[in-house]
Design a protein around this nucleic acid. Structure first.
Lengths: 132, 132
DNA sequence: CATCTGTATTACGATTAATAGTACACTAGG
DNA sequence: CCTAGTGTACTATTAATCGTAATACAGATG
């Protein structure tokens, strides 16, 4: 199903998140389609179910899938369209600005503060755990 | 000279970076003024010289001081100033972009990820407890 | 040469992160 | 109900990272 590099620096669950995200964004997997259960997936990839679960949870937090206890995990009908041209442009610009700001001495702490502020003005619609 | 909290969750070298940065930004320490040598500082604070050195190095990376082997470390004549017009412009632009991105569904987690990436390419900006 | 200075290398201890093992909880179909 | 599927929570173990320290090296100055 996937090729995972078990000895990569990149954690398995993260590789999994990336691959699945790609499948979802590219709409190879369609809205409300069920994903393989954590155990099935785990068996196929010969890794621990809990690692799959971690990936699924991450995808859920990011809004790509939703999970129902006892039923399964499914592709979200309203996934973040971060592959849109607009989002790509924004991300590129963001990285440029962040680099500049950090080069001028702004700290991660300060950036996180700014994010929290913006988050609150946008409204609580965030699917993410709040930043501590 | 300083009060460092040895049992704080925040690393000693980071506390040192913050304190010194403050002194420099507030111009209590002026351009080209020499800082205490790593050893003197270490003895005064009863910590290892290498910890001081790490702080100094961080400050140098961020452009607050410069060091010359065999001579000493000195306040940079051109320190980053976050209240500069340039920084203000960047912050404003940053908030605008962040709002757009979050409106399109990007999560705080993802933003933190991006910050971490940028941070590592910059060459290790000061790390924060807030980002995990 | 003696004694300042910063720097590089290495190692150790503690903390954190990734993964695994096990047990719990919910759902749906016999 | 009960069983076999599902996700989830908790704990343990291993690996990686991080902060700090010990030591040794290297340039500057007189």
């Amino acid at each position: 199903m996937f090729e995972l590099d078990i000895r990569s620096r990149k954690p398995i669950y993260e590789q999994l998140v990336d691959k699945l995200k790609e499948l979802i964004i590219s709409e190879v997997m369609k809205a409300d389609e069920q994903l393989p259960s954590v155990r099935v997936m785990a068996q196929q990839l010969t890794i621990n179910p809990n690692t799959i679960q971690k990936a699924y949870r991450e995808l859920e937090v990011q809004g790509y899938i939703y999970s129902i206890k006892g039923k399964g995990s499914f592709v979200s009908p309203d996934t973040p369209k971060q592959n849109s041209e607009k989002m790509k442009t924004i991300k590129t610009e963001l990285i440029k600005l962040l680099s500049e700001a950090m080069y001028l001495g702004i700290t991660s702490d300060q950036l996180v503060e700014i994010i929290k502020e913006v988050e609150s003005t946008i409204g609580g619609g965030s699917k993410s755990d709040s930043i501590q």
